[in-house]
Measured scan of single mutants.
Amino acid sequence: RNRTTFTSYQLEELEKVFQKTHYPDVYAREQLAMRTDLTEARVQVWFQNRRAKWRK
């Protein structure tokens, strides 16, 4: 699989949710996936990576 390149809009939306919660539930991830036109799996992985970056 190729690396996903996120648009500025997608990143904005993802970051907005990340500010509210670092662990969005499956419903929140589904909503976000629909809004950003990404798969729920991509959203889930983005949050995993974002949490790792945040911990550093």
Rank of each mutant, 00 (worst) to 15 (best):
R1I: 12
R1G: 12
R1Q: 06
R1F: 06
R1V: 14
N2L: 06
R3K: 13
T4I: 15
T5H: 13
T5G: 14
F6R: 02
T7S: 09
T7P: 04
T7V: 04
S8I: 07
S8P: 12
S8C: 11
Y9V: 13
Y9D: 08
Y9A: 12
Q10T: 03
Q10K: 03
Q10W: 01
L11V: 13
E12M: 03
E12Q: 08
E13P: 00
E13C: 05
E13V: 05
E13G: 01
E13D: 03
L14P: 01
L14D: 01
L14M: 12
E15S: 04
E15N: 03
K16Y: 03
K16N: 05
K16G: 08
V17P: 00
V17M: 12
F18K: 01
Q19R: 09
Q19M: 09
K20T: 12
K20H: 09
T21L: 04
T21K: 03
H22Y: 01
H22S: 06
Y23L: 03
P24E: 00
V26P: 08
V26D: 10
Y27G: 12
A28N: 09
R29S: 06
R29V: 14
E30D: 03
E30A: 06
E30L: 15
Q31N: 14
L32Q: 00
L32W: 00
L32T: 03
A33V: 07
A33Q: 06
M34L: 12
R35E: 05
R35T: 01
R35G: 04
D37L: 06
D37N: 15
L38M: 06
T39V: 05
T39K: 02
T39M: 04
T39A: 07
A41P: 09
R42H: 07
V43Y: 03
V43H: 05
Q44C: 15
V45C: 15
V45G: 13
V45I: 13
W46G: 01
W46A: 00
F47G: 01
Q48I: 04
N49E: 14
R50S: 04
R51G: 02
R51K: 04
R51I: 08
A52Q: 07
A52Y: 06
W54N: 15
W54T: 09
R55T: 10
K56P: 06
K56A: 07
K56Y: 10
